[in-house]
Nucleic acid binder design. Structure first.
Length: 490
RNA sequence: GGUCGGAUGGCCGAGUGGCUAGGCACGGGUCUGCAAAACCCUUUACACCGGUUCGAAUCCGGUUCCGACCUCCA
């Protein structure tokens, strides 16, 4: 129960394990980042937010974290027909831009999104296009070791050769025979180049129309989808590092193939812990372009989308995500988002109220509460449980303020220290409601509050209500209490 | 067809054998000039069918439904 160590679910072992870094206090994390060919959508939010909590918590625990999140700017093939287009190239033709312009444009969009969500920047953010040499070098090693072969200017990973020494499918639980059986259901072009349908491309020959291509020992071409992550994680985190993260949709074939490439190349599994977050659904349905329910992240902030009843702030969206455990699917709906918004406001208001609290006698136990919060985090980053405990503290804070609960000085000090720690430092929620100090606007509001109080004592309720309503129209809400009137800005 | 993950009260979501989270919404109350905020009370759920057990949302077997992935698709 009160396990003092972080436990994390490892997809590789299918068990929750105690997190033990390979070389403490250093921790290496590699997170699969986006392919930058479009505006970030709702599905892009969960990964960065989830792993930001992990990053922040490990930093809080005192680890020296190297956080690597790649940007994929080498397009991958658009569809099975393999007509030579790739995602970035295709988008480039549509927008009449250079492929690199597309990648740059949407990298900015991605960063802007992360910034608004208060996600800590990655320590290293390598681009696939900047690591062609490393990828080629890794492919050469794989060929030397007999785990890859060239065919018509392309290079493929030889799954059956690999399977003689290792187990392809250890991560996703698939076995090669079943993969073969499944593949017979589909007919793909370009398969004749491969020795087996299970084999996947490490390097793909580019035809003459292909813009994004690089010279290689096998001619002009571009790297396969999986090799970039193997090459870049190895370069920046070493042959073995602590945590490799990504969405569950990447489990197969991407991460499976990454393991195979790295193992074939270096002889060992690249990451000790494989951590996967689950997907987001919209009104119970998956997000897909064909269903026309892919909401862009910027649409949430403007409310400009048919599925959105109103705008939702970045912190609203983030809090909504954190109220679910990262390994479960999360269903989006307007109702759920609005519920999260109300809850978040209560949480932030209580955090501000906390600063005004005065101690009295021994009462509410802050240390017991604090331990429960840590236990929740240690239990596979159980943010919904942590948030439930935070609301217990909210209740305590409000009760203390109302004189219905008491707290002594040391418990109050602990609460004042740890409540903001969990809310802002670890969950990374920003205190947007906190009125900034030394601000003329705040002084003016205080002046109006004073005038309203005067009107109230004179029983001039028409005037006092007008002040309240006019301020409300400006997005400033007044809250009366026995101690006086406070305000919050929307 | 295969692999993996789900099905919890009006909504969202925790919870792996008894103590039956949390948020939001609803209803009642306290406070208030009124309202808001705050506080108190309230609403007892676990897809279905069997089984194990003194006792199951939680374990076992079966069924139904849903989602992701199944080779260049992030």
């Amino acid at each position: 129960m009160s396990s003092s160590k972080l436990n994390i679910y490892n997809t590789l072992t299918r068990k929750t394990e105690v997190f033990e870094p390979i070389a403490a206090p250093f921790v290496g994390i590699y997170l699969c980042g986006p392919t930058v060919y479009g505006e970030p959508h709702l599905g892009h939010v969960r990964g960065p937010v989830t792993f930001d909590i992990l990053n922040r918590y490990l930093l809080h625990l005192g680890y020296k974290v190297r956080f690597v999140r790649n940007i994929t700017d080498v397009g991958h093939l658009t569809d099975d027909s393999d007509d030579g287009d790739d995602k970035i190239l295709k988008k480039a033709i549509l927008e009449k831009l250079e492929p690199m312009e597309i990648a740059q444009k949407y990298t900015y969009s991605y960063h802007s999104m992360l910034n608004s969500l208060n996600v800590l920047p990655a320590g290293i953010e390598p681009r696939a296009s900047g690591h062609i040499i490393e990828q080629i070098s890794m492919i050469e090693t794989l060929i030397e070791k007999g785990y890859a072969y060239e065919s018509h200017g392309s290079v493929y990973f030889d799954v059956s050769a690999y399977s003689k020494n290792y187990q392809y499918g250890e991560l996703s639980g698939r076995i090669t025979e079943e993969l073969l059986a499944g593949s017979s259901r589909r007919t793909l072009e370009g398969q004749e180049e491969k020795r087996s349908p299970n084999d996947f491309a490490l390097w793909k020959k580019a035809d003459k129309n292909h813009i994004m291509k690089w010279p290689s020992p096998w001619g002009e071409g571009f790297p396969g989808w999986h090799i970039e992550c193997s090459a870049m994680s190895k370069k920046y985190l070493g042959e073995q590092f602590d945590i490799h993260g990504g969405g569950m949709d990447l489990l197969f074939p991407h991460h499976e193939s990454e393991i195979a490439q790295s193992k074939g190349c270096t002889g060992h599994t690249p990451a000790k812990y494989w951590v996967h977050h689950n997907m987001i659904t919209i009104n119970g349905q998956k997000m897909a372009k064909s269903l026309n329910n892919g909401i862009l992240v910027k649409d949430f902030f403007t409310g400009n989308h048919p599925l959105l009843e109103r705008a939702y702030s970045p912190m609203n969206l983030k809090f909504f995500i954190l109220q679910a455990h990262y390994r479960g699917t999360l269903d989006f709906s307007n109702e759920a988002l609005q519920a999260a918004d109300k809850g978040l406001e209560r949480l932030i208001t209580a955090m501000n109220t906390l600063q005004e609290l005065k101690p009295s006698r021994k009462g509410w136990n802050a240390d017991l509460w604090k331990q429960k919060c840590y236990d929740a985090l240690n239990d596979d980053l159980n943010t919904p449980i942590l948030i439930a405990h935070l609301f217990d503290a909210v209740k305590a804070i409000n009760s203390i303020k109302a004189g219905l609960e008491i707290i002594d000085e040391s418990d109050l000090d602990s609460l004042k220290k740890h409540f903001p720690l969990f809310v802002t430092d670890i969950l990374g929620l920003q205190n947007t409601a906190m009125p900034s100090a030394n601000n003329k606007e705040n002084e003016l509001i205080e002046l109006l509050i004073h005038l309203r109080a005067k009107a109230k004592t004179e029983k001039n309720y028409a005037l006092s209500d007008e002040i309240r309503n006019q301020l409300s129209n400006l997005g400033i809400e007044l809250k009366d209490s026995k101690e006086g009137t406070t305000f919050s800005k929307k």
